[in-house]
């Protein structure tokens, strides 16, 4: 096993690094280990519906990044008070096994007297509370196993990001499972800081081995390109969501308006509008304008910023409409 030092805290870069190693780099070693962290980020499972899982407005207002993983499972919040670990292993086993990747992590934690154990969802828990979520994918002849470690993560922020506005949504996306969480630092007999924790965990998992690979300028250039084209793109993070149906309701001075939207591959494919609002315009002008737009605020504003829609409703403006729809 070789170790790759990765000081980047950019989630797009860090996921691009994993992806690059799996799909392009083809290092000769059988197993690669990376230990990394991110700025405040919401990481969504590969087949989840992003808007169903996160508080998009809160994330936007607070500069929290949103990125879709290439692995399964639910949504997690990560910040500089936590760590992520990745094992990239050559070969795809026919059967699923999490324990061989998680056991070295449990061993490392035992050295710090942290009583960690597995639960039935392949998460790691201390006294029944989760501090590590794990997920995998099998891609291009490799198995990627990555997991999170909550060390001193801001739970207040976590809860705010993951509390979704109250609206009705129907989709076949994989749903997240809410669990009680805990920080590792609350269970240490001797306090250590996050950097010391990283060093101890890396040393334990690498079993003292200093084998490592240093990313070259060529590697970095490709990884940055993948980060930009794939992991930071709206198409990947929102457009890849499974098709869904969403109902959004707004109450304006001019009346109540309800939107029922079908969204497929990130685009609005059907739209029905109901309510007791007053307007001079046939409502189908608005629904037709919305069909074909990306389910994203700026795209929606652009779609409805037409003269007759702007003036078409009594006491309802375009910005208010866009805020309700998305």
């Amino acid at each position: 096993m070789i170790y790759i030092e990765n000081d980047s805290t950019d989630p797009f870069f860090n996921f691009a690094l994993e992806y690059y190693l799996i799909t392009e780099k083809n290092l000769p070693e059988d197993q690669i280990f990376i230990f990394w962290r991110t700025e405040p980020t919401l990481m969504v499972g590969k087949y989840q519906n992003t808007i169903e899982e996160i508080n998009q407005n809160y994330a936007k207002e607070n500069g929290i990044k949103v990125v879709r993983r290439i692995t399964g499972g639910g949504t997690i919040y990560t910040d500089m008070g936590g760590w992520q670990f990745s094992f990239i292993t050559r070969g795809q086993s026919d059967t699923i096994d999490f324990s061989k990747y998680i056991s070295p992590v449990i061993e490392g934690l035992k050295k710090l007297d942290v009583p960690a154990e597995f639960n039935s969802r392949n998460d790691l828990v201390i006294q029944g509370k989760k501090f590590s979520g794990n997920a995998q994918c099998m891609l291009n002849g490799y198995t990627l196993h990555h997991g999170s470690l909550l060390f001193s993560t801001d739970f207040e922020q976590m809860v705010k990001c993951l509390t979704v506005d109250d609206y009705k949504i129907i989709s076949k996306g994989i749903k997240s499972v809410k669990e009680r969480v805990t920080n590792i630092s609350d269970h240490l007999t001797k306090p250590i800081d996050t950097d010391t924790f990283k060093k101890l965990m890396v040393d334990s998992i690498m079993q003292g081995s200093k084998e490592h690979y240093q990313l070259t300028d060529t590697d970095l250039a490709r990884i940055k390109a993948i980060a930009k084209e794939k992991f930071a793109s709206w198409e990947w993070n929102y457009g890849k969501s499974p098709k869904f149906n969403i109902t959004k309701t707004g109450r304006f001075d001019g009346g109540k308006m309800e939107f029922k939207l079908d969204v497929n591959k990130g685009k609005i494919t059907d739209c029905h509008i109901y309510g007791d609002f007053f307007g001079t315009m046939d409502i189908s002008v608005l629904s037709n304008a919305l069909i074909g737009a990306d389910y994203e605020k700026e795209s929606i504003k652009k779609a409805i910023a037409q003269g007759d829609i702007k003036q078409g409703f009594y006491n309802i403006n375009v910005d208010e409409l866009a805020d309700i729809i998305c």
């Binding site: 590969k46 290439i70 692995t71 499972g73 392949n122 995998q136 994918c137 891609l139």
Partner: peptide, 9 residues
């Protein structure tokens, strides 16, 4: 397919 948080081609 996805099962138990594993995505497989």
């Amino acid at each position: 397919i996805e099962m138990d948080k594993v995505v497989s081609e």
